[in-house]
């Protein structure tokens, strides 16, 4: 089986039961992606599949063969942090850091969804394409990522900053 992971083609023969999360962590030693609940409930395992955020714990490695996978390890360019990573540092978007790789990958996916004009559950006018990334919008759109330390204020500030807008409460 083959996957493109962080821009590199990687190969491995794995049992069909292997999740994408275990493939990354156990077979390719990419341990940045975290295992929290292993059942889709926490978002610690969030990665980007062909640019879209998903939970790696619920995806079977075999099912995403041939696809493009980006993990937190693939975001920085050399020593230059991805803007969202830099924003997390600047705004204290973490305490223990366990949820952070998932939060950051999720925020990258969120930014792309905003660019495409996609609505969320709290978007009043579902037909609008220019949606203001308000505090409520960001909280709702990041709700798939839990943080046990409760660093949510820093996380929302970091995501807002990286989207290049001030968040209105």
């Amino acid at each position: 089986m083959k996957w493109t992971i962080n821009g590199h083609v990687r190969e491995a023969e794995v049992d069909f039961r292997t999740s994408l999360l275990d493939l990354l962590r156990e077979h390719f030693q990419l341990s940045g992606t975290k295992k929290g609940c292993n059942q889709g409930a926490c978002g610690a395992c969030t990665v980007l599949l062909d640019g879209q955020r998903i939970n790696a714990c619920l995806a079977l490695a075999v099912q995403v063969q041939g696809r493009d996978i980006m993990t937190v390890e693939g975001l920085a360019e050399g020593d230059a942090l991805h803007p969202i990573q830099a924003a997390f540092v600047e705004h204290d978007g973490f305490q223990c850091g366990y949820c952070t790789p998932g939060q950051i990958c999720s925020a990258v996916g969120l930014a792309e969804e905003f660019e495409r004009g996609l609505p969320s559950a709290v978007t009043k006018d579902l037909v609008a394409s220019d949606i203001e990334p308000s505090h409520d919008e960001l909280r709702e759109r990041m709700s798939g990522n839990l943080c046990r330390c409760g660093a949510y204020n820093g996380i929302v500030a970091a995501v807002a900053d990286s989207l290049g807008r001030e968040v209105r409460r």
């Binding site: 889709g40 939970n55 996916g109 969804e113 609505p119 969320s120 559950a121 037909v127 990522n145």
Partner: peptide, 22 residues
């Protein structure tokens, strides 16, 4: 979104963005 907004809204209130993408 235009013709069946309740369907968009119902889906968007379910699970998380990650799960809805899968």
């Amino acid at each position: 979104r235009l013709r069946y907004p309740l369907l968009s809204r119902a889906i968007l209130t379910g699970a998380s963005a990650q799960i809805r993408n899968m």
